[in-house]
Design a protein around this nucleic acid. Structure first.
Length: 328
DNA sequence: ACCTGTCAAGTCTGG
DNA sequence: CCAGACTTGACAGGT
């Protein structure tokens, strides 16, 4: 099984390389000339896209904050893509040229299980914005937006049903870009899997969230059904004949026994390897997103640890880039 | 150079 | 009903 590793949104290793520089509405409003302010926002966004390109020399999740204030209610008259399309296209070209897998993770304000119409409307607006950015990069539907199911509002089955209902009427261009991830507090892995199956949506298994929020199941017990969620038309939209978008997992380690839900700086190789070995037999390839505090630093450390384990046997082979081959 | 409060947005808990 | 926690990097203003 080929495992490709990626990491999240920013670098702790490369200096002066923020892809999410921003500007607050307060300072925007202090500028006397609104047009000049908008040019400033575009300059910030252009710098963010440039730094994204620098970071893409590694495998990567894109940051949602590429364009400051992009979906702010006061900025509805601004179309940032008019000025930024070439910069997005340049990032997209690099991604395609090197066969990288990229994704976004719209933050917790995107809640499709909400009972409030205005929250649903802004969630859809936010999803559309993420799709607009991926389109501006010229990336096919294999570049996904990963979200959680959302709040439970005191009645989890009703909230899940509302998610299904509200998802079902989304435009297809939004639907085909979505992956669903189990969270650490509310919708656990079996519950998320259930919703994924009902909607034909690919599920991203977060093995740390599963560890702290479960129904007593072991993560690899769910894997055969999770794997199947990647075999739907929505999951595989835009793949070429013979091409296959591998399932994705999220990987992090507990900060401490007293604070098990928080993310540690690095990743413990042993539990990760145990999981990967369990799924290796029926999974040809999987992409693993490192969600550790040390970001790319954690990825480099993990690769070093895996290299040492590989030298001692263990059925691991370290390959080019941040990837390994794991024997079942 | 360093520290602290704040940021557009949601949900949950507890007072 | 409202304040604070959750979680997050970076800004903005202060020392």
């Amino acid at each position: 099984m080929i495992v490709r590793f990626g990491y999240v949104a920013m670098s702790t290793v490369i200096p002066d390389c923020s892809p999410s520089k921003t500007m607050t509405m307060a300072s925007f409003n202090k500028l006397s000339d609104r047009e000049a302010g908008i040019r400033r926002l575009e300059t910030i966004a252009r710098g963010n896209l440039h730094n994204t390109l620098r970071l893409l020399k590694q495998v990567y999740r894109l940051t949602s904050k590429l364009i400051p204030l992009a979906t702010h209610p006061d900025m509805q008259d601004w179309n940032p893509f008019a000025a930024l399309t070439p910069d997005f296209a340049e990032v997209g070209s690099y991604v395609k040229k090197h066969g990288l897998r990229v994704s976004f993770h719209p933050d917790h304000f995107t809640v499709l299980s909400t009972p409030r119409p205005e929250v649903l409307a802004s969630s859809i607006r936010d999803l559309q914005h993420h799709v607009d950015m991926l389109n501006a990069m010229g990336l096919p539907a294999t570049a996904k937006n990963n979200i959680h199911i959302g709040g439970a509002y005191g009645d989890k089955p009703a909230a899940a049903a509302r998610f299904v209902e509200q998802f079902a009427v989304l435009p297809q261009v939004l639907q085909e870009r979505i992956t669903l991830e189990n969270d650490d507090k509310t919708f656990n892995a079996p519950e998320t899997l259930e919703v994924s199956r009902r909607l034909g949506l690919p599920m991203v298994l977060d093995i740390h969230h599963q560890w702290v929020n479960n129904e007593g199941e072991l993560p690899w017990e769910l894997w055969p059904e999770i794997l199947k969620t990647w075999q739907t038309p929505l999951a595989q939209r835009d793949t070429l004949p013979g091409e296959w978008l591998p399932p994705k997992i999220h990987v992090s380690s507990p900060r401490s026994p007293s604070d098990p839900r928080s993310h540690a700086d690095g990743v413990e190789p042993a539990p990760l390897l145990a999981f990967l070995k369990r799924i290796a037999a029926d999974t040809p390839a999987v992409d693993a997103m490192i969600e550790a505090k040390a970001k790319d630093g954690a990825l480099f450390d993990l690769m070093e640890a895996l290299k040492e384990l590989a030298e001692a046997g263990n059925g691991i082979k370290v390959l080019d880039g941040a990837s390994v081959n794991i024997e079942p």
